[in-house]
Amino acid sequence: MNVAGLISTTVGTIFLFLGSLGVFRMPDVYNRLQAGTKCTTLGAFLTIVGVGLMHNDWLPKALVISVFILITNPVSNHALGRAARKVGVPLCKKSVVDKTEEFEQRKVRQ
């Protein structure tokens, strides 16, 4: 049990670090959100569950915390991405396709 907790926490903290590195390195807001959502969500989940596995009494509370993070993190990231699109932050230069205008027109027509 202890070894599983150690491995889980180590992998989780590595993913936390990689998520922050992605926030630092990526070229525009949307790609930063990609890194910031996925890596930190799984990283925090694995870290907290790993701590719960290391101390067996803490496991239910740790599970509650990690499930809360798993629910609230996509919501806030979705809100931030939508806000960035409404403000009009441009995509980076590498982008290949942008269907936003088509989507807006369909929304008006319906």
């Binding site: 590195l21 992605g22 990526m26 890596c39 799984l42 995509l91 590498k94 088509e102």
Partner: peptide, 21 residues
């Protein structure tokens, strides 16, 4: 996560982003 970790760690950042419906 493995996918995003690969893209973050690669020195040239191999991305081809876009917005689709």
């Amino acid at each position: 996560n493995l996918d995003v970790a690969y893209r973050v760690l690669h020195p040239r950042i191999p991305i081809r982003p876009g917005i689709v419906v």
